[in-house]
Design a binder for these strands. Sequence first.
DNA 1: ATATTATTAGGAATAATTCCTAATTAAGTG
DNA 2: CACTTAATTAGGAATTATTCCTAATAATAT
Lengths: 143, 143
Amino acid sequence: MQQLEQIISSLRDEGLRITPQRIAIVDYLLKTEDHPSAELIHKVVRKRYPMVSLSTVYKTLDLLKEKKLVNEIEVEGEARFDAHTDEHINLICMKCGKIDDIDEEYLKEIQVKAAKKSKYLILKSNFELHGYCNSCKSKTKSI
Amino acid sequence: MQQLEQIISSLRDEGLRITPQRIAIVDYLLKTEDHPSAELIHKVVRKRYPMVSLSTVYKTLDLLKEKKLVNEIEVEGEARFDAHTDEHINLICMKCGKIDDIDEEYLKEIQVKAAKKSKYLILKSNFELHGYCNSCKSKTKSI
DNA sequence: ATATTATTAGGAATAATTCCTAATTAAGTG
DNA sequence: CACTTAATTAGGAATTATTCCTAATAATAT
């Protein structure tokens, strides 16, 4: 897990400017367990910095993705973001839309094996399992 | 790998109508190694059935997804489709956009383990590795 | 303090997908 | 085979997440 200060100084080291908008976005992503959409990030960040625009949120997310400081997955035509960037499994609830992370050490090995076999140069991985979370699953049963 | 006849009769058994549009779309998906987008499917199918509309392609794909006869993955804001529906890894080239499949037997085990740990009911999985394919990789090097 | 230049706000433009409806047609029935 | 009816389709309009554009703003170096 990254710290806000680390990320900020790594951005500064690359000659990028540290703006309140960027700080607020990174701060929120580090603190939340959610995998928020751009719009949700915008809504949340706006509470403290009302002038932040949605286009700035998108631009900042692009920047953070490029620097590998956040991870993006697409769920039902919408991008969802996460500061948890090491290999893991994303569990996606098809009912309530929540996303949980699970670590699985064998993923790295699978990736290396697939890279060798396919001769691809792998730059990013994304392991998704879609279904119903524990709470939505039981709600269904009781109907 | 499914056969066209199997799929058609399974659709018919559910009371669905067998139309030339549906046959053409399923037939193409079964024959191709590509992971075509809806638009590409439309273009290809149109050559033989010029009257097929894009909205019918989308509707048919929805139907086939629901019946678990095709798999969908989203790449750069665009859905890509594949008749290869058992667990596998999708290798996605970030340069040319091609997608290769690789089998990996341990995926099933990982999925079961994650389901147990998370208490999710898993309905669908999607394992993606993004990077450069062998050919795009070497092109980059030579620049 | 000032100059420079990256960044931002805000809205317009884009593009994949979904939605809508009248026309068509697959398939069951006598 | 002709007829019925309800599913399916074509075509285009509507939707929506994201990208693009540009003048205004503000972070940073000097």
